[in-house]
Design a protein around this nucleic acid. Structure first.
Lengths: 198, 198, 198, 198
DNA sequence: CATGAATGAGAGTTCATTCAT
DNA sequence: GATGAATGAACTCTCATTCAT
């Protein structure tokens, strides 16, 4: 039973994710979920009492996923060039960025705009800080083995992440081209890489 | 007559602005506006047919205001130091950024997320591009008179603006401290200013 | 003043007629009239308090017009053949019948369905009875001078008028072709005309 | 479930019928139905989205009923006198005609005035044509066994039906007495029956 | 007389939420 | 557990009607 019940809950969360991706957060009604899942109204209430509860579950499932940085961390262990890993990291961010659909971004922003969450528990902040730390470490590694020049790795990492966040909201609200993202990434990388004389 | 009528319309727009600031875009109903304005249901419809129409008016009024760059452009003419003007510009952005209340940001983001507007007409893009151009010119001016060192003024300007946009959404969705903003601004300025030997 | 005022009232009635023709009775709102007339809301109320009042005026103006039987009565005096006059009368009715637009029929029906009017004052009844009397006299005249054969002129006249009324409602609610009307008229005339042996 | 649900739908249709009978078509609001049925606002929308949908259902249920011609067709099989069957048919029409209440007539007219339906699908036309065919067959049968004299059975049938339609609208919009209907029916029958010398 | 801004009642419609089965 | 019918609150929008100017 609890097995089966767990399956159904998971099914709802997965399906709901798609709905949030498509309609944002505030726009989604319990009816939307019911319709998308093809279950009964009452059935949904057995698992979630409102969209917020459901959204948080979607968010949790999302965070728990291996996620975008899996590959990056993998490379970490393999002693690859820091610049390559960073480039890969940025490429993944870019992919995520441009995926205007299948993208929970706006729903997340909407949610955290509507429900102010104390900083300590704010998953948005956690995610951001974690990414900063990853990038910071990458830069430090790059500096150590002479690929990068950078006096303030943490500052650079933060700068990079804020740029990415800016690109993200730009992508969602006014649309940006791949070239725009590439240009920004290039600018960032050039600021780090030691120019060898030719 | 048209005078008075115009006044009332303006009153509605002004009042509605506050409602949008407080509740975002999607959450706002015509009833919210009616209640906030203290007018009748039908009275509102005399001026605006729906919240979108009203929001666009609010947006237009917002854009038309002298706005945040007024002071900056003033200084332009006075041959002040480019670094000072830029610092002022960033300070203004910071103020705007941190003003978590009285801030249309999220409503705007919500709106443009829901209503995809072709790039050509997208006011968000226009505003962004304009700001980039201002910053670019500032940097160029600074480079010319030896305050700044920068090989790619446009790239730097864009980087700055994306960082600001990232900070903005961060401010609205997870809250940031003044120190965080200061730190980012400092990082940006240090990247430009020629370090004099001490 | 009263001259001018009378003119305006007439203008409203005339314009309103078109609106009733187009939308029936129940569908018409004071706003429709105001829009059609291009006058102010308050202005309309100066003359009519509601659509019923206005409709009755339209109806009155309609009945007062020389109307469809003018030509017929003219011929009466000229000692024309009764069969010719009757044919003319029926032709006029046909024209009126088929004019699916510019036709107050449905509005009138709607009105008298909604507002039951005592028979004595019912203009619909008056109009019908008058038409019956005209047809009856025509038939009698035709019988007298040997054009028609008919034992019950009044009965025949009533039969004719009810058929016309049936055709009228058919025309408005399901559409009928000119042929259909012609066929019915022919049937009626053949029932009256004495067949000469050939 | 679907049993019960079907019952409720039927209940709504039946109750709505009464409302349409009383108020016509255009005048009826969803609220009227809701009140008449004693159900909730939302409850009605579970079954019908608007008054048109509901009216069409009422109309369908009406048409599907054994209806006024059931008895007539029964007699057909029993080799009764054609004149008797026709008299019965007309009597039934008369009953229907005079039933000023419990009569969907005006609602139907209103509906088909507002919603022009292509002739092919127009149920009003179908019903009319079917009735014409029945009467035509009756007349032919009567002619065959010497009861009637008629050279154009179809023409006579059509004439009869248009008279009935005329009487119907007259009944609804200005009221007619039973005598009026009787008189018209008598006129029709006399036109058909062969007068035996006395 | 004439205007049109303003009001408020009421129609249409959608959904969150409950509950008997 | 699961269903989906039912309810009622809330929202959008339209008009008849009034009234200060």
């Amino acid at each position: 039973m609890s097995e089966k019940s767990g399956q159904k809950k998971q099914y709802i969360v997965d399906t709901a994710r798609g709905v949030f991706v498509e309609k944002g957060y505030k726009n989604v009604t319990m009816k939307d979920i019911v319709d998308a899942c093809g279950i009964s109204r009452g059935g949904l209430y057995l698992y979630f009492s409102n969209t917020q509860e459901l959204f948080l579950e979607v968010l949790g499932a999302d965070g728990a996923e291996p996620g975008e940085n899996g590959e990056v961390e993998e490379l970490f262990g393999e002693n690859a060039f820091a610049s390559d890993i960073l480039a890969l990291f940025l490429k993944e961010q870019k992919k995520e960025l441009l995926r205007r659909k299948n993208n929970l971004t706006m729903a997340v922003y909407e949610y955290f705009f509507a429900h102010k969450v104390p900083k300590k528990d704010n998953p948005l902040k956690k995610k951001f800080d974690m990414a900063v730390r990853i990038v910071e470490k990458l830069i430090e590694a790059g500096v150590e083995n002479g690929e990068f020049y950078c006096e303030d790795a943490k500052g650079a990492a933060r700068n990079i992440m804020y740029v990415l966040e800016g690109l993200k909201i730009a992508s969602q609200t006014r649309g940006i081209t791949e070239e725009t993202v590439d240009r920004e990434i290039l600018y960032i990388m050039q600021g780090l890489i030691i120019e060898t004389e030719d």
